[in-house]
Nucleic acid binder design. Structure first.
Lengths: 250, 250
DNA sequence: CGCCCTTTTGAGGCATTTCAAACATTGTGG
DNA sequence: CCACAATGTTTGAAATGCCTCAAAAGGGCG
């Protein structure tokens, strides 16, 4: 199969020129507010695949926004069994869930070479009270993440393995589209193992499902490159197959 | 089995006398700040079992804090299959996840007769910028909920059915304890069906597991009344039995 | 008291995991 | 640049935990 490497365009390290500023926590601020905030934003990274931005248990020092690359947040259970919580792409805010305990409840790891912006936590607090719209944006980001988490719970709780993978691919598709990339062709930044963990199925099942989707020509897949051949078919798969019957609880 | 009905003590409807003020969004405010906030807090309910505080899709008008009773938030998927997202008890904040879209992404239903406080949304915004500590508390509440959601994902993704139920009971135990109730004896405010849905297993499985826990004398259970006979045993159950083996992903 | 809904119990089936092994890919040192 | 190790992916066959279906038992409420 012929295909080029497709990944997110790299953004400028200064906020004025950053191509993701309409997605990140700055998106609804006016020029003055942006300038105010930009004073405290520093550029971090790039970090390589596998390196961590913070570890579970680390004290909260800053919020971060992904600028290039991608990140997964995950839970390290005592007994070594881990659970991927979310995949984050450019523009996504990271670290605010540490606010309650002042330490990070999850770890964050780069899935590929990744750059990000850093906003020191004490600045976040002072800016939030100074700039109401910034407060609103931070809360919005938290709310969006909560919504994503709920969809994730829904997926784990209600959907069969094929529906989970289909939903996952559709979610990626949308998120690529929002970022100006193709919604039908993209490279997965995560391994099968990581997909399996996020969707809470065995790696072997993911592998079989990819093969099956390829065989039925719903997608074309070559290693980490995926091309969606039929969005409608994928959507149908994502919605059918609730694993335990549709019980109408009041 | 002999047992009295155990439920949360009812709290006063005014903030000064409210027994949950050290748990709710007021908990770290000083007297002046509390007074400021209390001006805008109104008392709502009581509402009866099955009634809703808001429905998925409703526009965001206010944040709420449970004052008495209990609530579940849940996802109503298009096809009628629902997923419980969280159970909320007195002191818990409700509704902030609507902030991103200005409409509620989940529905909230009373599990029993429930009273709650209402803070109009426009007041939340203005208070948050006026009172930095209030901003901090709202964000903390959001962060705590995010953390709970992640534990929920962990539970759905990594644990076997018995471990899920054990974890659920332990979670309730802790939350009762924090609220000054017994951590070993309590009444479930939710039906078996609702537990099953939250834990994403069949009702029949939940029923069997309760019977089994009772038989092995880990808990004593009589309808909705639960008495934990051995916390260590329950903890052991909650931690063992990862459903798909402990894979050490970097 | 009788109806309805929730809960419990039993038996069988199936989706997904588990175990096992071949295969492909990437990185490393000679 | 190739041999080789290490890791990630695919495929097959067997095992199993949980779901599904079916039906009885128990409580709540008019």
């Amino acid at each position: 199969m012929q295909h080029k490497i497709i990944s997110f365009p790299t953004a400028a390290a200064n906020c004025e020129d950053c191509r993701w500023s309409r997605l990140c926590v700055m998106r609804n601020l006016d020029a003055t507010e942006r300038a105010e905030l930009a004073r405290f934003v520093t550029s971090s990274g790039p970090i390589k695949q596998g390196e961590q931005i913070f570890r579970q248990g680390d004290p909260l020092t800053a919020f971060h926004v992904i600028r290039a690359g991608s990140v997964k947040t995950y839970f390290d259970s005592q007994d070594g069994c881990e659970q991927a919580v979310a995949y984050l792409f450019p523009g996504d805010l990271l670290g605010f869930d540490a606010l309650a305990e002042q330490r990070h409840p999850t770890s964050a790891m780069a899935l590929e070479t990744t750059s990000y912006c850093t906003i020191p936590y004490e600045r976040v607090e002072s800016l939030a009270s100074k700039l109401p719209r910034f407060w609103h944006e931070v809360m919005s980001a938290a709310a969006r993440q909560a919504d994503a988490d709920h969809h994730h719970a829904m997926l784990l709780g209600q959907k069969s393995a094929p529906a989970r993978l289909a939903s996952f691919l559709l979610d990626l598709s949308q998120r690529f589209a929002i970022r100006g990339c193709s919604k039908t062709e993209f490279n997965l930044s995560m391994s099968r193992q990581e997909i399996a963990n996020y969707l809470a199925v065995a790696v072997e099942t993911i592998s079989r499902l990819f093969t099956e989707l390829h065989r039925t020509k719903v997608i074309a897949v070559d290693r980490r490159f995926v091309k969606i051949l039929s969005l409608p078919a994928l959507e149908a798969l994502a919605n059918e197959g609730a694993q335990h019957g549709i019980r109408i609880a009041s």
